[in-house]
Design a protein around this nucleic acid. Structure first.
Length: 926
RNA sequence: GCAGCGGUGGUGAAAUGGUAUACACGACAGACUUAAAAUCUGUUGCACAUUAGUGCGUGAGGGUUCGAGUCCCUCCCGCUGUACCA
């Protein structure tokens, strides 16, 4: 037989499968179904990349497997074909996005077919084609009718270079995600989808789906649900109440520690109380300043700033204390109520602000058990080593330990000894020790004192009700600067944790009637109290914002809205859809939508609706297109509705969804939102679209870096198919490592896979009917069937490939191979390497295609070993192995083990215990 | 900071709490060859030892267990995401 040369047959089979429509989606609904979905690819001019191949092959293997298991299988493919790259390309070259996109799609289809991905092309859709975006527009109208799509003037992120609005999600560290230009804020009238209505369900229903934990967590973080309380603070001018405002907090249990309140610069409460603010000009200047800052500036400026409102104070409803009101830019107007109660003792940001502006810091929680923390340096000890030896009896926990300095924790019971040792250790003016606990600060000075009422040891309680320890400590620093740098300890994070513990389960102190409670109990009681006084309520807040869908771009789906001459929005009648994207436009970005330059678009509106009427000129975010394509796939034949309920209810939710790890938040969130919307409309009977979802791990370049033109490490799948054939590329990508892990490309390993397939090819020459030892071979292949079946179910493709290799090596130990065993081997290999297996199937004289054969069954009855290897351990250490009959009695196993020299020498006395794991292991404990 | 994932040979990586390193790559030795490539065979965790063998080994340190890469605690490192969200 000839050498393995995939070029000789891959193209032949590709043509035949396509012309026979081998992968056509069945239309009957009598069987179980499997919906294998690959994420909507953007048809880039660069063609398919190796990451696409990885995901598609995974989808394909599973699809082929379920077809052989006699499921109804669908593996559809379509194009997320609207979007900026094609438009930017058009601006550069003048080639219309429609033309470049269709061209790119052709390349994609050709590449996907060459890889043998079993796509049902009858279901192909393209977001940019009017038979698709007609329904995107229709969906917009449904959302509009339901009050979910709405128009609002809002400050939006504006990229001055791309001349477009960006969603919050497209702003990375204040920079445009595409061109890294600093993003500006701009007020514009924009369309939004009210996704926030669904925040709770989007959060809770994550429990229903089988997704990677990390992705679920990211979705939860993005929604950012937090449960808390609103509290109403009165605003007094003089002694008279003039107004009030609500704050939002998740830690109402710390409210007795509130020593100031913070209001966001944009908060409208400020204008309401403006007349009472005696330093308004100063405040106004600060507000203007803060507003002019871009997001980037606000983020990079770590230093917190604010202005105190003079003439007004806020009243803490719990103790009627007057607390100052500050306008501060670290409070966000868009979250919660836009104002906070600040508790510096238990919030790092508030602490920082309080230290800067000399605001009192009152601790109101203490931990359940007390410890001291101390920092000691060799420099300030007269005998550092002796001191270290002494404190060893405290069982200290070292947070930091070097030759020169230690930072350690110890239990409160040792404090007197500590003071004793420390007093002896310090010597001279510049020496000092200190220890800080939750309730006191102990400072031991080797000074000739004076400043400290004549003592060398200062024990300062932290929870003095009338005074504030931190202010006092600051005073110390003024007077003892020459002795110590104690102030620096505020900036040591270890200390700070002790000083302002972020306690969730502490005990309340300094909290009036609510003292001596656990934090959780205090919160409940305080909430009840607030409710009874009508001063506050439980409240849930979200980080999630409504979805801004307007884009001032050409290459997208037109928004189906028309305006009358007064500028009022009207929905376009459904029967007038699609509202076609005009072609006579100037792409050049001007800051306005390019579509505004279209004469035909203007004319169409006036002809249809009357003079002065005009269409919405913005297009939709392309995430709208990709949020519903998996519905459309179920019903592509039907031109009269967006999708058929019966089809959707049968095929969805998807059984395997492969998407890149970069799509962990937006696409999935939006798709889930649409699904819930249609569920609520009664159109579908499921409310999560993707049951099982997995990410393919990024494939890195051979140098271990991310593939990029910049590094010149991009692997093009075309080249690999050219070199080794599609089967090798497929199997290599599956063999690289676990599907979800990032993994570097390795040419050598790839050629190893080619070598394996060549061996498969050559082994075929040894195949005969009725060979000797065929039972033994059947047993080997039977085990393969089990492993491959299991591995496909759990998507463990790398171990499946290893098993194919191992099994082939075993079979090749025989001089001739049994045909039945061999055909089984080829069948289970078929989903992984569809071309070579089809060819071998054919060469062995089999009828029809291998890809519609039924999946071999694992036979447990023949899978028995006559002999098993028993590992013998003594005290858990492996000392010997021996073979014995399958399912031997324990006593026989023990007896045989005890006769072995290598065991005898370790077992000199009667064993204390013997543990026997059947057919596997014997552990003798002596 | 926070969240998620991960750390095992020279490399990619295997391992329901039960013989750590399957499978592959590379390396080394040999066969074939005038030679090379390809192919085939053997060896390949580390250390000591001529052999037999012994000891050590899954980021570090503890714990649970007859037995831990796997479970628990503390910590270190890397990657990804995210961040004034009260």
């Amino acid at each position: 037989m000839s050498q393995f040369n995939p070029k000789e047959f891959e193209n032949k089979w590709k043509q035949q499968w396509l012309s026979e429509k081998l992968y056509k989606t069945p239309t009957d609904k009598t069987k179980k179904k499997f919906y294998s979905l690959y994420s909507f690819p953007y048809p880039s001019g660069a063609g398919l990349h190796v990451g696409h191949v990885e995901g598609m092959v995974a989808n394909d293997i599973v699809a082929r497997y379920y077809r052989m298991k006699d499921y109804n299988v669908t593996l559809p493919m379509g194009w997320d074909s609207f979007g900026l790259p094609a438009e930017n390309y058009a601006i550069k070259t003048g080639i219309h996005p429609h033309d470049s996109t269709e061209e790119a799609i052709k390349t994609f289809i050709d590449q996907i077919d060459r890889l043998g991905i079993s796509v049902d092309w009858d279901k192909e859709v393209g977001a940019h084609r009017s038979d698709y975006y007609k329904w995107t527009q229709w969906i917009f109208l449904q959302l509009y009718k339901a009050g979910i799509a709405y128009k609002a003037v809002a400050p939006v992120n504006w990229c001055p270079k791309d001349q477009t609005v960006l969603a919050n999600e497209q702003v990375i560290n204040g920079l445009c995600e595409r061109c890294d230009t600093p993003v500006e804020q701009k007020e514009m009238s924009q369309w939004f989808f009210k996704i926030t209505d669904y925040a709770d369900r989007l959060y809770d229903d994550l429990d229903k789906v089988d997704w990677p934990q990390g992705t679920k967590q990211m979705q939860r973080n993005w929604i950012g649900r937090s449960e808390g309380t609103t509290v109403r603070f009165a605003v007094n001018a003089g002694s008279k109440q003039v107004n009030s405002f609500d704050i939002f907090t998740t830690r109402v249990d710390t409210i007795f520690g509130c020593t100031f309140t913070g209001i966001a610069p944009e908060n409208k409460v400020l204008t309401e109380i403006k007349e009472h603010i005696t330093n308004w000009p100063q405040v106004e200047e600060y507000i203007t300043q803060a507003r002019n800052k871009t997001d980037l500036q606000r983020q990079t400026e770590k230093d917190k700033s604010g202005v105190k409102l003079e003439g007004v104070v806020a009243i803490n409803p719990f103790n009627s204390n007057e607390v100052p009101i500050y306008v501060v830019d670290y409070v966000l107007n868009t979250y919660g109520t836009g104002s906070i109660m600040a508790v510096p003792a238990h919030d790092e940001r508030d602490m920082e602000f309080a230290l800067k502006y000399d605001i009192p810091i009152i601790p109101v929680l203490k931990p359940k058990s007390e410890e001291y923390i101390s920092y000691v340096s060799r420099k300030w000890s007269n005998d550092f080593n002796k001191f270290l030896n002494q404190i060893a009896e405290f069982n200290p926990i070292y947070l930091k330990k070097t030759q020169e300095e230690v930072l350690f924790k110890f239990k409160a019971e040792f404090i007197d000894k500590y003071i004793d040792y420390a007093s002896k250790s310090v010597e001279g003016k510049s020496a000092w020790h200190d220890a800080v606990s939750e309730s006191e600060v102990v400072v031991i000075f080797g000074s000739d004192k004076a400043e400290f009422s004549g003592v060398d040891i200062a024990r300062i309680p932290k929870f003095m009700s009338d005074e504030n320890i931190w202010i006092k400590m600051k005073d110390f620093e003024e007077s003892i600067r020459q002795y110590s740098n104690i102030w620096t300890m505020y900036y040591n994070s270890e200390y700070r944790e002790k000083i302002c513990p972020a306690l969730t389960d502490g005990i309340t102190i300094n909290s009036g009637d609510f003292s001596d409670l656990s934090a959780a109990d205090a919160a409940v009681k305080m909430q009840e109290w607030l409710k009874s006084k009508e001063l506050g309520n439980k409240k849930t807040n979200y980080k999630l914002r409504d979805w801004l869908v307007s884009r001032q771009r050409y290459w997208g789906c037109p928004i189906p809205i028309v305006y009358d001459p007064e500028g009022n929005a009207h929905a376009i009648d459904e029967k007038d859809l699609p509202l076609l994207l005009p072609t006579d436009v100037d792409f050049k970005p001007t800051g306005e939508s390019p579509i505004k330059s279209s004469e035909s678009f203007k004319k169409l509106a006036e002809e249809k609706y009357g003079k002065g009427w005009y269409f919405e000129a913005d297009t939709m975010d392309t995430f709208v297109d990709s949020s519903w394509y998996y519905f459309r796939f179920t019903s592509t034949d039907d031109q009269n509705q967006w999708a058929i309920s019966e089809e959707m209810n049968y095929w969805l939710p998807t059984d395997l969804y492969m998407i890149g790890a970069e799509h962990t938040v937006l696409h999935l969130m939006y798709s889930r939102f649409f699904t819930k919307f249609f569920f609520d409309q009664g159109v579908i009977n499921f409310d999560e679209p993707f049951y099982k979802m997995r990410h393919m791990g990024t494939i890195l370049g051979p140098d271990g870096r991310k593939m990029s033109k910049r590094w010149g490490n991009v692997i093009n799948p075309n080249d690999e198919v050219e070199k080794y054939g599609a089967d090798t590329l497929r199997m290599y990508e599956m063999f690289m490592g676990p599907l979800e892990e990032p993994k570097p490309w390795n040419d050598r390993t790839e050629s190893g896979v080619f070598r394996f397939l060549s061996k498969v090819w050559n082994t075929n020459a040894k195949v005969q009917e009725n060979v000797q030892k065929s039972a033994e071979q059947a047993k080997i292949v039977n085990r393969l069937v089990k492993k491959i079946t299991d591995d496909i179910e759990i998507l463990s493709f790398n171990t499946a490939v290893a098993k194919f290799m191992e099994t082939l090596n075993s079979l090749n130990e025989f001089d001739s191979i049994d045909k039945q065993a061999w055909l089984t081997y080829v069948k289970v290999l078929a989903p992984f390497a569809p071309f070579i297996t089809e060819e071998l199937w054919n060469l062995n004289g089999q009828q029809s295609t291998i890809h519609t054969q039924s999946w071999p069954e694992y036979n447990a009855e023949i899978d028995i070993e006559e002999q098993v290897t028993i590992a013998v351990q003594v005290n858990g250490k492996l000392r010997a192995t021996f073979n014995i009959e399958f399912d031997s009695q324990e006593s026989n196993v023990v007896e045989k083990a005890m006769q072995m020299e290598s065991i005898k020498k370790f077992v000199t006395t009667e064993p204390k215990k013997v543990i026997y794991i059947k057919n596997k292991l014997l552990n003798i404990v002596v």
